[in-house]
Nucleic acid binder design. Structure first.
Lengths: 227, 227
DNA sequence: TGTACATCAGTGAACGCGCGTTCACTGATGTAC
DNA sequence: TGTACATCAGTGAACGCGCGTTCACTGATGTAC
């Protein structure tokens, strides 16, 4: 028992070492350059040994993706928890945390929100962690609705969403609502802003990225009735 | 003269053939999979022969990027020209044309607006064509300002932009203006929406992508005062 | 506590693949007198 | 118009590289009696 436990512990440790090295390679060279052989080389083991821990390169990549979604999700959740009670404060804290994480981990951000990795199909495992950031935004909206700080502005845009989504998220379900669709727009626009800054599309246009981003997010929050 | 002209014509033609094949490979397999050898193979020539036309793979990639920027730029310009006279009509036509082009050319879109290609640094040549889509949006704003259909909403957000940008674009330059910054937000949000749809982030959330997108763009146009 | 067996981690060689780029070369096409 | 030379396109072999994955194998570690 304790012997088997020791073996399992060693195994878990080496698994973690492999993902750590892989994550560092991903962070410095990008997903396309991530190679099992290079990871094995750095750990001083034969490249074939890695296959005792991950059945293929894609599985290693999946682990990194899940970890990255969890990392940005946790960063955003923590920032939002620490923020003041105002809806706008909470939203700005969450949005800025997402941007900060992205700037600190550009290649991991690119892996999550940039071009799909060629030949890689994301398995089901990545869906739940991918939703964490969006969950934070929805939570703010839900709280605002609960105590009347925001009201459904109407407009029926939610009819364009998948049936049942608003109910699942705890948003108004009656026809004529638009909060769900507004949330999707705010959510995707957050990533549009981060992506433009990170991938260099706003070079020569935006000077003070911090101030610009905050002002932009404030405007987006206004779309949801945050004050 | 006519002999030299003939040689030049043949040369231009083969150059075009190479870029055409390369573009097709890019469109079907993505930028990472684009290989000089594969292009040469398809054209039935030695891989070394391609070097008579492009000094390196990166140069071929640059040509494809410039062409792609021009293609989406032209698509957006044409759609906007054909649209009705209303500012919102023109904006919606432009935004939908961008989305249509992106959906028809996902890998080329990813090359322009997705993760940067590892090891590739975009040269100056790509800057001007990259601005064409944004120019269309700015043109609509400018026209609205000229005849008073929209007015500067104030807010001083333009202070976050590079000095001289608003003047260069023909937007209000007095301190306290926010139209430039609003334009950047709308612009990046347009790409955020397209990217989310194209890269699968909105799977399971948005059902009717056409209707959702139009409604979202209408809301963004409202940020600039379009009606 | 000791022994026979099963499990597991790790090795090193190999397979088969494709890539970008260089280089010395052969012919064909164009140019200058 | 004809000839000597220069330019250019294209070839094919080679260099050097790295990759993911498989496979038969050696020892060490754990397990059951």
């Amino acid at each position: 028992m304790s012997a088997a436990g020791a073996r399992a512990r060693v195994r878990a440790e080496l698994t973690r070492e492999i993902t750590d090295v892989a994550r560092r390679h991903l962070a410095s060279d990008g997903a396309a350059a991530l190679s099992l052989r290079a990871v094995a080389r750095e750990l001083g083991m034969a490249s074939s040994a890695v296959y005792r821990y991950f059945p293929s390169r894609d599985d290693l990549l999946t682990t990194l993706i899940v970890d990255a979604y969890d990392a940005i999700g946790e960063a955003v959740e923590r920032a939002e928890e620490k923020a003041g009670p105002g809806l706008m404060d909470r939203w700005l804290a969450a949005a800025c945390a997402a941007r900060d994480w992205a700037r600190a981990h550009p290649h991991e951000y690119a892996l999550l929100y940039g071009s799909p990795v060629p030949g890689y199909a994301a398995p089901q495992t990545t869906i739940a962690p991918a939703a964490r950031v969006a969950e934070v935004l929805i939570g703010i909206v839900r709280d605002g609705l609960a105590d009347g700080r925001i009201t459904d502005p109407g407009g029926d845009d939610d009819a364009t969403l998948e049936p049942g989504v608003t109910e699942r998220l705890g948003l108004p379900t009656e026809p004529g609502s638009s909060l769900g669709a507004r949330g999707v727009l705010v959510w995707s626009s957050l990533y549009g802003s981060i992506t433009f800054e990170l991938f260099g599309q706003s070079v020569g246009v935006v000077a003070d990225h911090d101030a610009y981003f905050t002002a932009a997010m404030r405007r987006l929050g206004g779309e949801l009735g945050f004050t």
